[in-house]
Simulated assay, not measured.
Amino acid sequence: MSKPEKVFKSTTDQLQLLQRRGLVIDDPMFAEEALIRTSYYEIINGYKDLFIDANAEEESFQACTTFSEIYYLYEMDNTLRFAMLSATLSAENLLRSVIAYVLAEEHGHSVKDYQNNRNFRQGKKITHGRSKGKYERELLLQIFSEVYHSTHQPMTYYRETYRDMPPWILVKGLSFGNLQYLFKLMLPGSKMKVIARATGMSSELIDDRFKQSFSEMFDILVAFRNWAAHGGRVYNHRVRKRLSHSPAHARFSVTHSAYQKHGRGRDDILSFIVALSYLRDREIADHFIRLVTSEIYDYVISFPRHEDMLLSQMNIPITLYQGWLHHSK
């Protein structure tokens, strides 16, 4: 049976509907202004789930739930989304710089040198899409060619002025996903240099397990970046990628048991933080942690009864949050 068709409702109608469902409109003027600026769909449909009475036959809110509780959860998440985009931009810039450096160091700065077939693994045969039948290396070199012939700056300047394009310019035209694709197809020796330079670790200490963790770190950052860039809810989001439990999790008091039982640091916002912590610029992760801590604190100060619920949804253990809070003071 199909659901009834959605019909237009004025903001007054929307507030009355919410009241009939048991939501307390604690500040009517503020609530109406919020719905005008942001929309019913973004605030209510996006963030109501935690406040719905699971035992009610028809959708209704838990007793004493206010509009402000939902709205400020939306506001908190909105702040986290922009912080996540900022953090991934910093991580992306670091990884671009490192990958371009290794390409130039290993294979030269001229297109004819570093874009040679022999500098990259062949990869798998593509089985679907417009590139079906090609090997991944062919697609990578096609992406390079598209960037080289781009009409955007500074690519156009280098192509027209020098008839060439060094890797530190070419990588500026790659998306974060394409940068990850480039890393994936680099030769083992080049990959090792990228990992060492990006993390600040000595090559002698990088084993196969750490190589795998670094690749997964790339997956997690790209997945969260794409989700945030498309306006998705981030505070309790779970991506489809997985970050394996590693010694890096110990810095956030995530035991293997907690990882297995609760999925902490696997595909949640905590996994995003762990992924950032791999990078040599520790301030990227630290800055994001400070902002997350501040946002949780501000929400909990206003709505203390939701502390456990919020931390549970974010999959952040209360002891870890309290430690962050202590260090931020």
Rank of each mutant, 00 (worst) to 15 (best):
S110L: 04
A91P: 02
A83Q: 13
Y72S: 11
R81K: 03
A91K: 03
H109Y: 10
A100H: 03
K112T: 05
E105G: 09
L103I: 03
F61D: 06
K132N: 15
F61S: 07
F120C: 00
H107F: 14
A83T: 13
L103G: 05
T66S: 10
I70F: 01
D77T: 04
Y101G: 05
N116S: 07
L94P: 07
V111C: 03
F82W: 13
L94F: 06
D113G: 02
I70V: 09
L95W: 08
A83V: 03
A91Y: 04
H107K: 10
R130F: 15
T127Y: 08
F82L: 04
T127I: 15
L89S: 01
Q62V: 07
S86H: 13
K124T: 14
G123L: 05
E69W: 04
E75K: 11
A83Y: 12
S90M: 08
E59D: 03
S86K: 15
Y101L: 07
Y71W: 00
N78E: 08
S131L: 04
S97V: 03
Y72N: 03
R121M: 12
N119L: 00
T66Q: 09
V98M: 06
A91V: 00
M84R: 06
S110A: 06
T88S: 04
E105Q: 09
V98K: 09
K112D: 04
K112N: 06
S60Q: 06
Y114N: 02
Q115V: 04
Y114C: 00
V102K: 06
G129N: 03
N116Y: 02
M76R: 12
V98R: 13
L94T: 13
S131T: 15
E105M: 05
M76H: 06
I126S: 01
I126N: 08
K124F: 15
I126R: 13
L94R: 10
E69H: 02
A63R: 12
K125W: 10
E57F: 15
T127L: 15
E106C: 09
N93P: 00
A87N: 07
T127G: 14
K132M: 07
T65R: 12
V111W: 13
T65P: 04
H109V: 04
D113Y: 02
D77F: 10
L95F: 08
S60F: 11
H107Y: 11
G108K: 02
F61A: 08
A104L: 01
R121A: 08
E69I: 00
Q122I: 13
S131G: 12
R96A: 06
E59S: 10
Q122M: 11
R121E: 11
A104V: 05
I70N: 01
N78W: 07
S60T: 08
E57M: 12
T88V: 02
C64G: 00
V102S: 03
G123E: 01
A100V: 07
Y101K: 14
V102G: 06
I70H: 09
F67I: 02
E75Q: 12
